[in-house]
Each structure stands twice: as structure tokens, then as C-alpha cells.
């Protein structure tokens, strides 16, 4: 679930509000969106992938993490390389190669096609 929105990194582009398929965010009075309906989060990672400044973090759990979890700490997420990692893998952002162009996976059967998605 969405667990973190770092107001320091956020540039108030409102993209997360727009792209979240289940409408989890609200516009914030101070320009920083708020996680208004966390329980509606479907853990799809789309907001994170679309955030231009890696200000969001989606934990893999489909239930909320307890307060004080290390995933709520930006420094921890930066240190572990998790913050912005999905966007990096997708190759989204200036100067990156789209991940799709590099997506040459294994073949599941000896004569089968290579998986590319």
C-alpha cells in the first residue's frame, strides 16, 4: 500500500492525484497531495512510477504497515535503494532507456518465445 509521500521531495505536480486508479489521494491545501483513502489502495505502484521526483513509496503489503515502520523513513528508503526503484526499472525519467526496450527474458519452454513482459 501507499505508505509515504515525502513533502520535501514533492513538487506539487498533482500527477499522483490524477493517475491513481482508485482515487486514493486528495489535493492538498498547501499544494502537497494527501493520502486520503489508504484503504482503497490496490498496491499497483502506478503513483510511484509516475511521480517525477520519487516522493512516493508503495510497500508491497496489501494492508497498512504499523506506525514507525522503517518504510516510513525516507533516509532508510534511499539507503536501501528502494525509493524510486520502480521508476528506474521502467526506465522512466530523463536520460533513461525504457525498460521495455531491454526486456529480453527467458523462454519458459525450450522452443517457446522469450518473455518480454
Amino acid at each position: 500500500m501507499i505508505e509515504l509521500l515525502d513533502p520535501e521531495r514533492c513538487v506539487s505536480c498533482d500527477k499522483c492525484v490524477k493517475v491513481c486508479p482508485t482515487d486514493v489521494f486528495d489535493l492538498g491545501a498547501d499544494g502537497v497531495p494527501v493520502i486520503a483513502r489508504q484503504s482503497d489502495c490496490q498496491t499497483c505502484f502506478q503513483c510511484e512510477a509516475n511521480c517525477p521526483t520519487d516522493a512516493l513509496y508503495v510497500a508491497p503489503h496489501t494492508t497498512p504497515l504499523p506506525p514507525g515502520s522503517p518504510e516510513h523513513d525516507v533516509a532508510h528508503l534511499v539507503e536501501t535503494g528502494l525509493l524510486g526503484s520502480y521508476r528506474a526499472h521502467l526506465g522512466w525519467g530523463r536520460g533513461r532507456t525504457p525498460g521495455a526496450a531491454l526486456a529480453v527474458g527467458p523462454s519458459l519452454t525450450p522452443s517457446g518465445p522469450r518473455l518480454i513482459s
Binding site: 521502467l90 525498460g99 521495455a100 526486456a103 529480453v104 518465445p113 522469450r114 518473455l115 518480454i116 513482459s117
Partner: peptide, 10 residues
Amino acid sequence: PLRTGLQGPE
């Protein structure tokens, strides 16, 4: 070119 799949977000 390999065209047997599509990455969703892209």
C-alpha cells in the same frame, strides 16, 4: 524484434 508481450505502464 521481439513482439510477444507488452509492459503494462509503457
